[in-house]
Amino acid sequence: MKILLVDGTIIGQKTSAILEQTRLYLLEASPEVEVTILKLADYQHQFVDGRPLGEYNEDMQHIAREFEEADGYIIASPIFQGSIPGVLKNVFDLLHPRTMRYKAVSIVANGGTYQHHLVIENQLKPILDYFRCFVTPNYVYTHTSHFDEQNRITEEDVHDRLRELARVFVKYMEMGCTLSKETLDTH
């Protein structure tokens, strides 16, 4: 099973730190999974405007292929100005509506205020619902106070929640992999 960890920003280090810790807990929960980190900062992005996928640059096509080939996703997003980064929304706009269908998704996010966790509920979850993903009921939201100067997570509670997220995600992914998209699409 292939898990795609999506670093949904092109700046900052905290989102990457959360994903790296999540990767370790995923491998602890299920050592046989293949985990790939997709850092949006590593790609040349184009604005998605509805043209066919083949008309975008190689980086955009590669991002779409990574999503298509994955069996599940951990989406990591900072919260900027009370919203997800535009680059992450642009990637969602790139994907075919069936790309993520019936695949497991967990969310990790970080922000500068404790209220920004509502962005997950009010913006990110509705997008993932549109894709008909199996969104796990638990997500992990971190605050800048949960990190030290080297962007290491210092709060044991955050580590506990990431471990739990990894365990629940693996179960959701197993469930998603047992479903046949073709069978579900015909009904």
Score class of each variant (00 low, 15 high):
residue 113 T to S: 13
residue 42 D to S: 13
residue 62 H to E: 00
residue 68 E to I: 06
residue 96 H to F: 09
residue 105 V to T: 09
residue 63 I to T: 01
residue 82 G to P: 14
residue 100 M to Q: 11
residue 121 E to C: 04
residue 111 G to T: 15
residue 122 N to E: 11
residue 35 V to M: 01
residue 62 H to N: 11
residue 45 H to Y: 06
residue 31 P to W: 01
residue 84 I to R: 05
residue 34 E to N: 14
residue 72 G to K: 01
residue 75 I to S: 04
residue 131 F to E: 02
residue 79 I to K: 02
residue 122 N to R: 11
residue 83 S to C: 12
residue 78 P to Q: 10
residue 93 D to N: 15
residue 60 M to L: 09
residue 78 P to S: 08
residue 124 L to Q: 10
residue 110 N to S: 06
residue 112 G to Q: 09
residue 81 Q to K: 15
residue 73 Y to P: 05
residue 66 E to D: 08
residue 108 V to P: 02
residue 124 L to P: 11
residue 108 V to S: 01
residue 88 L to R: 07
residue 45 H to Q: 10
residue 128 L to T: 00
residue 32 E to I: 03
residue 81 Q to H: 15
residue 48 V to T: 15
residue 113 T to N: 10
residue 37 I to G: 01
residue 63 I to K: 02
residue 110 N to G: 04
residue 110 N to K: 01
residue 33 V to F: 02
residue 105 V to D: 01
residue 91 V to H: 01
residue 90 N to I: 12
residue 94 L to A: 06
residue 119 V to G: 00
residue 37 I to N: 01
residue 111 G to S: 13
residue 115 Q to R: 14
residue 108 V to L: 05
residue 36 T to R: 12
residue 72 G to I: 12
residue 64 A to Q: 05
residue 130 Y to P: 00
residue 68 E to A: 08
residue 65 R to G: 08
residue 58 E to M: 07
residue 37 I to F: 02
residue 53 L to G: 06
residue 59 D to P: 11
residue 70 A to V: 08
residue 77 S to Y: 04
residue 45 H to K: 06
residue 71 D to W: 00
residue 54 G to Y: 05
residue 98 R to A: 14
residue 132 R to E: 15
residue 54 G to I: 10
residue 122 N to I: 11
residue 32 E to R: 03
residue 59 D to T: 13
residue 117 H to Q: 14
residue 117 H to I: 13
residue 35 V to A: 06
residue 89 K to L: 13
residue 70 A to Q: 03
residue 103 K to C: 07
residue 78 P to T: 14
residue 103 K to L: 05
residue 46 Q to A: 04
residue 62 H to Q: 07
residue 115 Q to D: 12
residue 36 T to Q: 12
residue 56 Y to E: 09
residue 88 L to F: 02
residue 66 E to C: 02
residue 98 R to E: 13
residue 70 A to C: 09
residue 112 G to D: 10
residue 48 V to L: 08
residue 127 I to D: 00
residue 85 P to A: 06
residue 101 R to D: 07
residue 48 V to R: 05
residue 59 D to S: 13
residue 52 P to G: 09
residue 89 K to D: 03
residue 37 I to C: 01
residue 43 Y to E: 00
residue 56 Y to T: 09
residue 109 A to M: 10
residue 109 A to R: 07
residue 106 S to M: 11
residue 68 E to M: 05
residue 105 V to H: 03
residue 112 G to K: 08
residue 83 S to M: 14
residue 52 P to Y: 09
residue 76 A to Y: 03
residue 36 T to F: 06
residue 80 F to K: 11
residue 115 Q to T: 13
residue 104 A to L: 04
residue 125 K to N: 11
residue 68 E to F: 03
residue 71 D to P: 03
residue 66 E to Y: 02
residue 42 D to K: 00
residue 111 G to P: 13
residue 78 P to C: 08
residue 67 F to C: 02
